[in-house]
Amino acid sequence: MATTTSIISSNIARPDFAAIANLVKTGSKVLDLGCGDGSLLRYLRDTKDIHGYGVEINDENVQACFKNGINVIQNDLESGLSSFGSGSFDYVILSQTLQAMRHTEDLIKEMMRVSKEGIVSFPNFGYWKNRLQILSGYMPVSEFLPYQWFDTPNIHLCTLGDFERFCLQHGANILERRIMNGNHQVSFAPNLFGALAFYRFEQQK
């Protein structure tokens, strides 16, 4: 099937999927919040043999999930995760969705309730290219922030520093951090040179 091939090849081209897959144990149970067309779950299923569910609000995306053969629950993340039992997942993933959530604090709390561990990825607002655009007097527009200021869904952008402080204040214990720029992991001055951030965390015990 032509569509299947194109989805798989686009997965290979997505280093952020690989970064998340690296954080996930084989055979685990995964919940993907704001799962889009389901291609991350599909990728994790194919590469990590996970048992996964996605949550998605958009009709077109839900339909794409159906086509991808992914379990998807059409629901608004903003109204909570009440369909999901406490501790019922190994991982709950929020992939490049954090910055578009209105009730960020509630959602992170809910993530820690339903899952043993949480994985969050987001575009680092502190990335030097973003800083440069602001210095030049304009809101950043880039591969990971593709919107103009007037049409962006991103209402809660943050830097690595912001997120780590947030975790500290909200009882989230960071277990692993991967900062990426394209295919490369960034270790030197990540808040400046990292474009995408991946965090694995758990509820502080």
Binding site: K29, Y53, V62, F66, I70, N71, I73, Q74, S83, S88
Partner: peptide, 19 residues
């Protein structure tokens, strides 16, 4: 339907739901 979906999820069954 949410109640049905919740029961299915609690049993780790494959389920998709759309509203």
């Amino acid at each position: 339907s949410h109640a049905i979906v919740k029961a299915l999820l609690d049993n780790e069954l494959n389920v998709s739901y759309a509203e």
